[in-house]
């Protein structure tokens, strides 16, 4: 019985509970200004729990800015001012006393270009758990690294060379390593900023498979320029244009029966 409870506890640790509304993140009247230029205008968007949300739109429409708001990476952009609220599990992350360290542990991020640290593969994955002191035990850390690498499907490829530098991997492997690095801190949300734009089609397919795998346990927000990819991987889609959300909702609905002419044009490839 005790064993059973422990097992159950472990399980819940792995999967962050979804709230009753099944909404992980929520933005309310979110506006972003660079100096005096407004980059985002009153964005209201709900991000469903343990689902994939795709952000689409032409370059410079504000989707990256929006994504950086979700884990406050905008703090590092000079002259950037954010108004409005971003709620994670109901708590506004833009309150003054929010600790960005804790926040970013819960909301990880993967970048456009694979950016493994110039350290070993092992160290790349162990970096997050180590700095957050999630695990202080070498064996547990080994186990976590293995589990994480298995989860991103990299374990079989690198098991015999964990000490090799992360930069020695191929582009697709590097990106999966970066995803492993991001999920090793046990986040609730993983942000992916065009994770496949620097990869070849085969590596892209692998990442898409991985996303489908991860969505069971993580809430994923993905920016993509590929309509097909958005259609393939996401449950929900938000279409950004000139700092506004033109349309957001179920992916099938957006792609098959968009309400707005602009959405139709963009998806149809008339501009972009």
């Amino acid at each position: 019985m005790v064993k059973n409870m422990n097992a159950e506890k472990k399980k819940t640790e792995d999967i962050a509970e979804c709230g009753p509304e099944n909404i992980r993140m929520k933005t309310q009247n979110l506006s972003v200004f660079y100096n005096n230029d407004q980059a985002l205008h009153d964005i209201n968007l709900d991000i469903a729990c343990n689902k994939v949300t795709a952000l689409i739109g032409p370059s410079g429409c504000g989707k990256s800015t929006f994504m950086r708001c979700l884990n406050r990476m905008n703090d590092y952009v000079e002259n950037c001012r954010v108004t409005g609220k971003v709620r994670l599990d109901g708590f506004n992350i833009y309150k003054d006393n929010v600790d960005t360290i804790l926040l970013r542990q819960k909301v990880g991020m993967v970048f456009q270009k694979p950016n493994p640290f110039p350290k070993s593969i092992y160290e790349n994955v162990a970096y997050g758990p180590k700095i957050h002191h999630l695990i202080d035990n070498k064996d547990e850390l080994d186990a976590l690294v293995e589990k994480t690498l298995r989860r991103v499907g990299l374990w079989d490829e690198v098991a015999d060379r964990l000490a090799a530098p992360g930069t020695s991997l191929s582009g697709g492997q590097q990106q999966r390593l970066c995803i492993a690095r991001a999920i090793a801190t046990k986040p609730e949300v993983v942000l992916m900023d065009e994770p496949c734009s620097a990869l070849d089609p085969i590596a892209t397919a692998r990442i898409e498979e991985l996303i489908a795998e991860l969505e069971k346990k993580f809430t994923i927000v993905i920016i993509t320029h590929s309509m097909q990819q958005a259609e393939r991987v996401s449950h929900h889609t938000a279409f950004f244009h000139m700092g506004h959300i033109i349309e957001a909702g179920d992916t099938q609905k957006i792609f098959n029966d968009p309400e707005h002419q602009k959405t139709k044009d963009y998806i149809g490839g008339k501009f972009g």
Binding site: R104, N115, P118, Y127, R181, T185
Partner: peptide, 23 residues
């Protein structure tokens, strides 16, 4: 991109400097 990679998973600036940038 390296330092952003570190900051985005919750490292402080000083941890990023000491463990990623300086090495």
């Amino acid at each position: 991109s390296l330092s952003f990679g570190s900051l985005a998973i919750g490292a402080t600036q000083s941890e990023t400097i000491k463990k990623v940038i300086l090495p």
